[in-house]
Design a protein around this nucleic acid. Structure first.
Lengths: 207, 207
DNA sequence: GATTGTGAATAGATTCACAGCT
DNA sequence: AGCTGTGAATCTATTCACAATC
């Protein structure tokens, strides 16, 4: 099998997409599918599906296709989705609260174990079964929950500081929704998602 | 100048990033900057900055660098951010409500003019200065607001139908937060943002 | 002297096309 | 007969390196 680090973010995201598609097929009781049929149904590329999968091993049966259930399981294993990953959220504004309540972030492989905010007005607010805690309690929260992933959902100007706090608290994987490029830190993986950029991408084609 | 269509999404998103960085510089009263310095400060690539910009024209002064204010204006023009783009949101769940309140989507070049939901329980709720309207009113809303962009923030199973409604209402650019690949429709631009994929990308490196 | 703009070189990602299995 | 897995070919993106310019 291959090394962990040498796969592109593009290919990795496609594996997630394949998993989504396969789960949809499973719900419709499809047991087996060929790369061609998978591509046709979900507007993907058959050659790319095969190449992406083959990169991690031989998952299919020549002449037949892929077994939907077993491919699902193997993709989950590949993506590290077999166990639950505890998550903490920093920032209880619009985005932070929405993500804390978002079912996708609270089922399957992820569970939000806590949410903190600097603003005393926000501390104590309830979000589903969580209570917003002060940012000063982040280190304990991370330790108690064994959180592996931090979601940074604070305004741009507060992002660098809260980023450092997350790292100091022991978080090594961060999903950043603040529209600022954070300074890289060795061994810390940051994925920045700037929602405005998506709108701007659409705006470009409206001129 | 160049054609509209032949730029990659990657390059386009970088232009948005450059604009963010330049606005930060403007706030710190930096008047001029070289590609090298811009790259150094924000962890970008100097050669790539020059190539991206040069693709659209000659924006810099050799031996000197780029004028921050004028480059900002030119990037805004390039990206179609000079005028306000009316936006409608379909789905008043966690994500829809958060985006409707999100300052980034309600300032500068974008303004959310309305939000609709199928659920009678949600209709009538107030979100900032908007009231959630029933989905049946989407066509009027789009017409009245002259909305150009639709944000699809409904559960996966409801996405295909609401996608068709947006298109039928006259929307041609759609930002889709539902984790399903939508069928392509000619002349309709869809950008799907699957938030869970970002978490899964981080999870991959946690095994 | 410094920095842009750009062709050439390199690296990376996708598609093709077919040998190898079932 | 049909489909996977894969090397080769193509396409796309990034980086290099330097001539052109201020």
């Amino acid at each position: 099998m291959h090394h962990s680090e040498d796969i592109s973010s593009l290919a990795l995201n496609r594996l997630s997409t394949y998993l989504r598609c396969l789960r949809l097929l499973q719900e419709s009781n499809v047991k087996r599918i060929s790369s061609q049929e998978l591509a046709r149904r979900f507007h993907l590329s058959a050659a790319q599906i095969r190449k992406d999968l083959a990169y991690f091993g031989e998952f299919g049966i020549r002449g037949v296709g892929y077994d939907v259930a077993s491919l699902c399981r193997r993709l989950e294993a590949l993506l590290g989705l077999e166990r639950e990953h505890p998550v903490v959220v920093v920032g209880a504004g619009n985005i932070g609260r929405a993500l804390a309540r978002f079912p996708g972030f609270n089922s399957g492989s992820f569970r939000i174990h806590g949410i903190v905010d600097n603003d005393p007005q926000k501390v104590g607010q309830r979000i589903n079964d969580l209570e917003v805690r002060p940012s000063s309690e982040l280190p304990q929260l991370v330790q108690q929950s064994q959180a592996e992933i931090g979601i940074l959902a604070v305004p741009a100007e507060a992002a660098p500081e809260n980023y450092r706090c997350l790292v100091a608290a022991g978080i090594r994987s961060i999903l950043n929704f603040a529209p600022v490029p954070l300074d890289p830190i060795p061994d810390i993986r940051v994925k920045t998602v700037d929602l405005l950029i998506f709108l701007e991408e659409l705006a470009y084609f409206l001129r």
